[in-house]
Lab assay of single mutants.
Amino acid sequence: MKTQEELTEIVRDHFSDMGEAATLYVQVYESSLESLVGGVIFEDGRHYTFVYENEDLVYE
């Protein structure tokens, strides 16, 4: 099982292909040891929320 830090790095790496991230945040109260819930805000103003669970990243 991966730590939240490892899950955060996986998510950060995925979003790095989409541009320069200004902020990546984790909603600790919705996350667990198995999943990471949060969002990313890019330098150009785009904002996505995400759920990373079971090696699957879903974002909108």
Rank of each mutant, 00 (worst) to 15 (best):
44 D>T: 03
50 F>N: 00
17 D>T: 15
16 S>I: 09
16 S>A: 12
33 L>P: 12
59 Y>S: 03
41 I>C: 12
59 Y>E: 03
21 A>N: 13
11 V>E: 03
16 S>Y: 09
12 R>D: 02
54 N>K: 09
18 M>Q: 05
21 A>K: 11
19 G>F: 09
38 G>H: 02
11 V>I: 10
38 G>S: 01
24 L>K: 01
48 Y>R: 00
3 T>M: 03
26 V>N: 01
50 F>Y: 04
13 D>M: 14
55 E>N: 14
11 V>T: 01
10 I>D: 02
56 D>N: 15
59 Y>N: 01
32 S>D: 10
31 S>K: 07
24 L>E: 03
8 T>C: 15
46 R>W: 06
29 Y>I: 05
48 Y>L: 06
41 I>K: 05
11 V>M: 04
23 T>I: 14
40 V>I: 14
46 R>Q: 05
58 V>L: 10
41 I>W: 11
6 E>N: 05
8 T>F: 11
35 S>N: 05
24 L>N: 01
13 D>C: 14
4 Q>M: 12
26 V>F: 07
19 G>S: 05
38 G>R: 00
16 S>P: 05
51 V>A: 06
49 T>A: 06
11 V>Q: 02
36 L>K: 00
21 A>D: 10
5 E>G: 06
58 V>E: 06
11 V>K: 00
14 H>K: 12
5 E>Q: 10
46 R>L: 05
2 K>C: 13
25 Y>E: 05
4 Q>C: 15
20 E>V: 14
24 L>I: 15
14 H>Y: 15
22 A>R: 07
6 E>P: 01
41 I>H: 05
46 R>D: 02
2 K>R: 08
22 A>D: 07
5 E>N: 07
32 S>H: 11
51 V>T: 09
5 E>F: 08
2 K>G: 04
3 T>Q: 03
27 Q>V: 14
21 A>I: 15
41 I>E: 02
55 E>C: 14
40 V>S: 01
50 F>Q: 00
47 H>I: 07
29 Y>T: 03
47 H>D: 01
33 L>G: 10
23 T>C: 15
34 E>P: 12
54 N>V: 05
28 V>T: 09
29 Y>H: 06
50 F>D: 00
51 V>K: 10
16 S>T: 08
7 L>N: 03
4 Q>F: 14
5 E>C: 12
42 F>Q: 00
21 A>H: 11
54 N>T: 04
7 L>R: 01
39 G>M: 14
53 E>W: 11
36 L>M: 08
29 Y>V: 04
6 E>R: 04
39 G>N: 06
31 S>C: 10
12 R>P: 02
15 F>A: 02
4 Q>Y: 12
51 V>Y: 09
60 E>C: 15
21 A>G: 14
21 A>P: 14
53 E>C: 12
12 R>T: 04
50 F>M: 00
24 L>H: 02
52 Y>G: 00
42 F>C: 07
33 L>R: 12
29 Y>G: 05
31 S>R: 04
10 I>A: 05
23 T>Y: 14
36 L>R: 00
20 E>G: 12
15 F>Q: 01
52 Y>D: 00
9 E>T: 11
20 E>R: 06
37 V>P: 00
37 V>N: 03
26 V>I: 13
8 T>P: 02
1 M>L: 13
39 G>W: 15
39 G>Y: 15
55 E>W: 09
50 F>L: 03
12 R>Q: 06
30 E>L: 12
41 I>T: 06
40 V>P: 00
13 D>R: 14
1 M>E: 07
6 E>S: 04
29 Y>P: 03
17 D>P: 10
51 V>P: 01
47 H>T: 05
20 E>Q: 12
7 L>G: 01
2 K>P: 03
29 Y>A: 04
52 Y>S: 00
15 F>T: 02
47 H>Q: 06
13 D>Y: 10
44 D>Q: 01
4 Q>D: 04
16 S>E: 06
19 G>T: 05
12 R>N: 04
15 F>C: 10
28 V>Y: 14
47 H>Y: 08
22 A>Q: 10
9 E>S: 11
50 F>G: 00
24 L>D: 02
12 R>G: 04
14 H>G: 04
57 L>N: 01
25 Y>C: 11
49 T>L: 12
28 V>P: 02
53 E>T: 12
33 L>C: 13
26 V>G: 01
3 T>K: 04
8 T>Q: 09
46 R>S: 06
22 A>C: 14
43 E>M: 11
36 L>E: 00
12 R>H: 05
41 I>P: 00
32 S>G: 10
47 H>R: 04
38 G>C: 10
40 V>G: 01
31 S>V: 09
9 E>F: 07
52 Y>K: 00
36 L>Y: 06
20 E>N: 13
53 E>L: 13
31 S>W: 11
36 L>I: 12
35 S>G: 06
37 V>G: 03
26 V>D: 03
54 N>A: 07
29 Y>Q: 04
47 H>C: 12
9 E>M: 12
35 S>W: 10
25 Y>M: 05
34 E>A: 12
24 L>M: 08
23 T>L: 13
44 D>R: 00
22 A>P: 12
3 T>W: 06
42 F>P: 00
2 K>F: 07
10 I>N: 03
9 E>Q: 14
35 S>T: 14
17 D>K: 15
51 V>G: 01
53 E>I: 13
36 L>W: 07
60 E>Q: 13
45 G>C: 08
28 V>K: 11
40 V>R: 00
28 V>S: 13
45 G>L: 03
7 L>D: 01
27 Q>P: 03
14 H>C: 15
50 F>T: 00
1 M>V: 12
49 T>N: 05
43 E>I: 10
53 E>A: 13
5 E>M: 08
30 E>F: 11
14 H>F: 15
51 V>W: 10
32 S>V: 09
51 V>R: 11
19 G>L: 05
22 A>Y: 15
25 Y>F: 05
20 E>C: 14
15 F>L: 04
46 R>C: 09
17 D>M: 15
28 V>W: 14
11 V>Y: 03
18 M>G: 05
21 A>L: 15
55 E>F: 11
45 G>R: 00
18 M>K: 07
28 V>M: 11
3 T>I: 03
22 A>G: 10
59 Y>T: 05
49 T>I: 11
49 T>H: 11
54 N>W: 06
11 V>F: 05
18 M>E: 04
58 V>A: 08
14 H>D: 02
42 F>K: 00
35 S>K: 15
55 E>R: 09
43 E>N: 09
57 L>W: 06
3 T>N: 06
4 Q>P: 05
19 G>D: 04
51 V>E: 02
16 S>W: 08
6 E>Q: 11
31 S>N: 06
45 G>N: 02
40 V>Q: 01
54 N>Y: 08
56 D>R: 15
24 L>A: 03
15 F>I: 04
24 L>F: 12
20 E>Y: 12
5 E>S: 07
8 T>S: 07
41 I>M: 07
57 L>I: 09
44 D>G: 02
28 V>I: 11
37 V>R: 13
33 L>Y: 10
3 T>F: 05
27 Q>H: 12
17 D>G: 14
3 T>Y: 05
43 E>F: 07
12 R>E: 03
15 F>N: 01
13 D>A: 15
42 F>S: 00
42 F>T: 03
24 L>T: 02
18 M>W: 11
43 E>D: 09
19 G>N: 05
29 Y>D: 04
43 E>C: 13
8 T>D: 04
13 D>N: 14
10 I>M: 08
4 Q>K: 10
15 F>S: 01
44 D>C: 06
57 L>T: 01
55 E>Y: 10
44 D>N: 03
28 V>A: 12
15 F>H: 01
23 T>G: 05
54 N>H: 09
21 A>Q: 10
39 G>E: 13
30 E>G: 06
28 V>L: 12
9 E>C: 12
9 E>V: 09
12 R>A: 07
6 E>V: 06
52 Y>T: 02
59 Y>V: 12
27 Q>N: 13
14 H>S: 06
59 Y>L: 12
5 E>R: 06
2 K>L: 10
16 S>L: 12
41 I>D: 00
51 V>F: 08
19 G>E: 03
12 R>W: 12
23 T>F: 14
55 E>G: 15
38 G>Q: 03
9 E>R: 09
33 L>H: 10
49 T>Y: 11
42 F>H: 00
55 E>A: 11
8 T>L: 15
19 G>Y: 06
20 E>T: 14
11 V>H: 01
16 S>H: 09
31 S>E: 12
30 E>N: 15
34 E>M: 09
58 V>H: 12
32 S>T: 11
1 M>K: 13
42 F>D: 00
3 T>V: 03
12 R>C: 14
57 L>F: 08
52 Y>I: 06
45 G>D: 01
